[in-house]
Simulated assay, not measured.
Amino acid sequence: AAAGALLAIWLMVRGLARSHEATGGKLSAPPPADPGTDWTPVVVIAVLALLVACVAAELLRSGWYWSGGTQVVVAVALGVTALATAVQGSGREAPEPAPSPAPTYVSPPCRSGGDSDECARSGR
């Protein structure tokens, strides 16, 4: 429980520091562009699941079946969470490019057959 609490606090502080760095310390800065997938939370959850699984194995070997079984359930839940987060992070699509700006006013073609400079002087 203590290791999980420390990992959660570390991830929260890391997230706050990362968002503060992205804005450059400004409070009213626009959100930054997508920097890509951050795999640190997935790795932390997977390590925590592995730690709980090791504790569960030791409890089961010692004859603590209820405690070991509960730890197995927790380890499986953490493993599923890590896998779901990894799949969601890797399935993220690249952002679509910004649409091109609307065209500006285009004058109608010149009826006299002259070039655009002649039409600009005539008003047509």
Rank of each mutant, 00 (worst) to 15 (best):
P103S: 02
C110M: 04
M12H: 13
H20W: 15
E118S: 12
V76I: 08
D34Y: 08
A94R: 13
P30H: 02
D34H: 06
S67L: 09
L7R: 15
S67K: 02
Y105E: 14
T23G: 13
V74I: 11
T81M: 13
L7S: 15
P101R: 12
P101C: 08
V74P: 01
A86N: 05
L59G: 00
R61D: 04
W66H: 10
D38V: 02
A22P: 13
P32R: 01
A33M: 06
V106L: 09
Y105K: 13
V87A: 09
A75T: 03
R14C: 05
G89R: 10
P101W: 09
L60M: 10
A77E: 01
A53E: 08
K26C: 13
G113T: 07
A57R: 04
P108R: 11
I45A: 09
A49W: 02
Y65N: 06
V87T: 10
D117L: 05
W64N: 12
P32G: 03
I45S: 05
P35R: 03
G123C: 07
P97A: 07
V73H: 00
S100W: 13
W10E: 15
P32E: 01
W39L: 07
T23K: 13
R14W: 11
G123I: 06
C110Q: 08
Q71M: 12
P97G: 06
G25F: 07
A3S: 13
V52N: 04
R121C: 04
R18P: 06
G89I: 00
H20P: 00
D117H: 09
A102F: 11
V74E: 03
T70Y: 07
T70C: 09
W10Y: 15
V72F: 00
Q71K: 07
L6T: 13
